[in-house]
Design a protein around this nucleic acid. Structure first.
Length: 340
DNA sequence: GCGACAG
DNA sequence: ATCTTGTCGC
């Protein structure tokens, strides 16, 4: 089946990615003097409490865009939390000037908490997109058809993301070529929403590769596939959008439980959604070598079967923790980003 | 206090 | 992911 025009795929995806920073600024500026909200209140207004960590770090930006009112955001316990100036007493003084006294380092949320204005709940919309995403029915890749294995990774320099696709031969050991694409990236990292941060650069990169007939037969993606709270990690979405087989390779655990704690080098240890349902395998933990105690977390992305996934990944190791295509893409993207 | 979440 | 000094090991 022919691939879609990836330039168009990239454009239509970019169209659906909200500007969370602008929305958060609007919310924070709506808090009247003399009132407060919790970090989690803001995250919930954006559509997912998991974003509360990003909310906190955003408000901590030195001389950030909401410096004049970020003192009105405190912890859900009433504790003041941190302040962008680095001096929490400054936060306390500003609140006092507005009539909010902190007792034992806490403000009374029952008394001073205010309602936030309605929003479009952008994160709830993205979550629903993941939940309802229809993965096209496709035939799994045949190992005999695999000539090129690509590895994808992104590095950052400020707001610029540098994506690299490193293409190796079917042996998974010999580099054939690599391609690079840089793009400004505004969507933040929020656990579970990585795809909306990194898909745009990947799609632009793959669009160029498509134009030059340099697309690989399968992609190892730095991140998860099925091993995701909504079974829709970046590897799965990317594969479904471009029509290329993908495998998710993460360096730390996003969700799930290792079925058997004892993990031996080179063996694939099943990861299940919950220990109560040991048959719903979301992915695998794999110790690539004895030098590390941290396994990789590998899961099906798109159009790849269990057997092919194991074969393709296993053949790509060469002494590094990551499979060579990803290791090379990581190293190269980081090198380029550091020169910007 | 516990739990703890890709990049 | 990035910020960062020294340190352990092949």
């Amino acid at each position: 089946m022919p691939l879609p025009d990836l330039g168009q795929v990239a454009d239509s995806l970019q169209q659906r990615i909200p500007d969370l920073g602008m929305e958060l600024q609007r919310l924070v500026r709506s808090i009247p003097p003399g009132r407060v909200v919790a970090y989690g209140d803001l995250a919930n207004s954006l559509g997912d409490s998991v974003a509360s960590r990003w909310v906190a770090t955003y408000l901590l930006l030195p001389d950030g865009p909401v410096a004049e009112c970020s003192h009105r955001v405190v912890r859900s316990t009433g504790e003041l939390g941190l302040y962008y100036s680095g001096d929490v007493t400054e936060k306390a003084v500003k609140l006092t000037q507005e009539g909010i006294m902190a007792r034992d380092g806490r403000v009374d949320l029952d008394q001073f908490r205010c309602e936030l204005p309605a929003t479009a709940k952008p994160l709830a919309t993205l979550k629903a997109w993941q939940r309802d995403f229809v993965v096209p029915r496709a035939k799994n890749v045949e190992l005999s058809d695999v000539t090129t294995i690509g590895g994808l990774d992104v590095s950052y320099h400020g707001e610029t993301g540098v994506a690299v696709c490193s293409c190796f031969g079917a042996d998974g050991q010999k580099l054939k070529y690599h391609d690079v694409k840089s793009l400004p990236i505004r969507f933040p990292y929020i656990s579970g929403y990585l795809a909306f941060r990194e898909l745009p650069v990947y799609l632009e990169l793959l669009a160029e590769m498509q134009a030059n007939e340099r697309l690989p037969d399968v992609l190892l993606v730095d991140g998860n596939g099925k091993l995701h709270p909504r079974r829709m990690g970046i590897a799965t979405m990317l594969g479904a959008l471009v029509g290329i087989a993908t495998i998710g390779i993460a360096k730390s655990r996003l969700c799930g439980t290792l079925l058997h704690e004892d993990l031996k080098v080179g063996t694939w240890g099943p990861i299940v959604a919950s220990i109560d349902e040991p048959h719903e395998v979301l992915g695998y933990a794999l110790l690539p070598h004895g030098k590390t105690k941290n396994p990789l977390f590998i899961s099906e992305g798109y159009a790849v079967g269990e057997e092919a996934m194991r074969s393709l990944v296993d053949r790509c190791f060469a002494g590094h923790r990551s499979p060579e295509p990803i290791y090379h893409a990581d190293r190269e993207s980081r090198r380029i980003a550091s020169t910007l």
